[in-house]
Write a protein that binds this DNA or RNA. Structure first.
Lengths: 341, 341
DNA sequence: CTGAAAGCGCTTACAG
DNA sequence: CTGAAAGCGCTTACAG
């Protein structure tokens, strides 16, 4: 491997001058700069990043922890992060927590040991304790949370207003005439599922619809299978339900599959609205009305915040955490339709 | 940040001994080792990876280039790679080429400059020239290709037998009684689409069905929209087609959407088989018969090959490239059904 | 405009 | 069993 030393020897000048020339320092003569540049190109010189990292104490690499890679929303976020990072010359190391608190701690540790310049994280459902996050922040490593966040942790965040979005979804069901509205919610832990539930409840209250807790089903792993399972359950106990707001598209797609199986007509007999706008939602039959969650944009914004924090801390400028709330849209498709008055 | 020096000073011993003690060298007394270990834990010592990298000339980091992150097959591969890498203490930097040759070159360069220990790559459709890959190999950086490969490049590979799999898919259509079988193929470039086309053609020939080139449609971006578009085209020109083998699930799902739109019954009027087994294929209606392509396993295997190459090269042991061909399965679903003789 | 020197924080061959 | 010293390949403050 070619080093600065090789170039210096080749030209009979010092390593110092070569280094400065390559960085276009103005205190090196134009002539020398040109000569060095050409020799470096000729020898196919590539700076040794390991040495650069050690000297500059930066690696131009950030870490990313997501609960699950094979997931349309998260892969969109990853894409947003990677594309934005690239623009600023950063590379991204991706790890997944598999929705496990223990794994999340482990991965965070790996990244801290690796000394990445900053970390982006979306929490696992299993994460209730935030000590590991606090440690990172106290270590002064820039940390930005997105989507699944811990409200009480002080750091920058990028989220959607889940409560408002869920309200919007539920209001849509009410607007088209639904009276008995069920809700499949996520587990007790991630802030998301709490907020979406609260949005659902609030919409009912604001429209003078009695909240009936027996219409709220608490799911665990939020899978396609669970969607089928709870749809079956719902049909068994609550034949009168005319609308359902489901926490996430995958589960909604499972529920619709079960409704289809049992010959229950969507939307005629039951209106279904999901959450997230997975690509899949647009191609199933009936296509799924849902709330669009801008994953790609969330990734971009999250990286931008992180980048800013990295720059500011590096330059020891005062820095304030920021919380960005992205807009969500209602995407109306075939699975909801105004009821005959 | 705590360094070896801090620990050494704390204990009044040399940096050398601390370093060796932490690595459990047997030539350090048990007592000293214990003392050092405890002090390191107490001070929350973390080895500076930048320095370690510089010394050992390894970063325990590999690079991964895929054409597209938001893609069920590739995200499964990523998951397989990341999970396997983790087991061996490696981290993964992911980049995407967006199916562009230029971008692919750039990303490969970024990774080379970063001095990752090895690189995993699935080629962009646009890649026809392999100079960038050869350079990496000549640089002695371990490189493993998977899924979309260049046959003539000498390196380890993990693939499926696309030709055989396509043959299997086409044979299935023939077995259920199809006589006029169309094919939506991918662009001319990636080896995949050539092989799948050849498998299709071979199956026809072996079953004494005349190959009709007008039944083969060459698509470009392999999107849902293109599936709809070419399905429309097919219906316009070839009403007699009773079966179609489509290069990839997403396109097949688009085609089915178009058939549904136009009231063409799948499978009664036309049998459809896809390729890849995206999760989506199982939830659409009718669900899609397809060829399962084991993404997760491919990722795991690809990393294992890369890891082995890294180890062998590091130890300067002789090393032979290996090509692993993974099995594919026919997944029969609703979109194909035996024709009434 | 150029260069000698220190130092980033490790690892390891070598001496004792 | 312990440690002084060299070196990985850069960057940069400082001197001239």
């Amino acid at each position: 491997m070619v080093t600065l030393k090789h170039i210096a020897e080749e030209l009979g000048i010092s390593i110092t001058t070569v280094s400065k020339a390559l960085k276009e320092y103005p205190d090196v003569s134009k002539k020398t700069r040109k000569l060095v540049r050409e020799t470096a190109a000729m020898l196919n010189y590539k700076p040794n990043t390991f040495a650069v990292n050690l000297r500059t104490k930066e690696s131009k690499t950030i870490g990313l922890i997501i609960p699950e890679i094979v997931h349309h929303f998260f892969s969109s976020v990853v894409k947003g992060i990677v594309s934005q990072a690239e623009k600023k010359g950063y590379l991204v190391i991706t790890l997944q927590s598999n929705e496990s608190y223990e794994l999340e701690k482990k991965q965070l540790n790996l990244l801290a040991n690796k000394r990445v310049d900053g970390i982006l994280i979306s929490l696992a459902n299993g994460t209730a304790d935030y000590k590991h996050l606090k440690e990172i922040i106290e270590d002064d490593t820039p940390l930005v949370m997105f989507d699944k966040i811990a409200k009480i942790i002080k750091c920058s965040k990028v989220i959607v207003d889940d409560r408002k979005a869920a309200y919007k979804a539920t209001q849509h069901l009410i607007d088209i005439g639904c009276k008995r509205i069920a809700h499949f919610r996520g587990p007790l832990l991630p802030q998301n599922s709490i907020d979406r539930f609260l949005g659902y409840k609030q919409a009912l209250t604001d429209n003078n619809i009695l909240y009936d807790s027996s219409l709220v089903y608490l799911l665990n792993d939020m899978s396609f299978e669970e969607g089928k399972l709870y749809a079956k359950e719902l049909l068994k106990n609550h034949k009168d339900v005319d609308g359902i707001f489901i926490n996430t598209d995958l589960v909604a797609i499972g529920a619709i599959a079960e409704f289809n199986n049992q010959g229950i007509k969507v939307p005629e007999q039951i209106n279904v609205i999901g959450f997230s706008n997975w690509f899949m939602a647009s191609v199933i039959s009936p296509s799924l009305t849902t709330i669009n969650q801008p994953g790609f944009e969330m990734g971009k914004k999250a990286f931008k915040l992180l980048y800013k924090e990295i720059r500011y801390k590096k330059e020891k400028r005062p820095f304030n955490y920021k919380e960005i709330v992205l807009e969500t849209d209602l995407i109306t498709r075939e699975s909801t339709k105004p009821l005959p008055f």
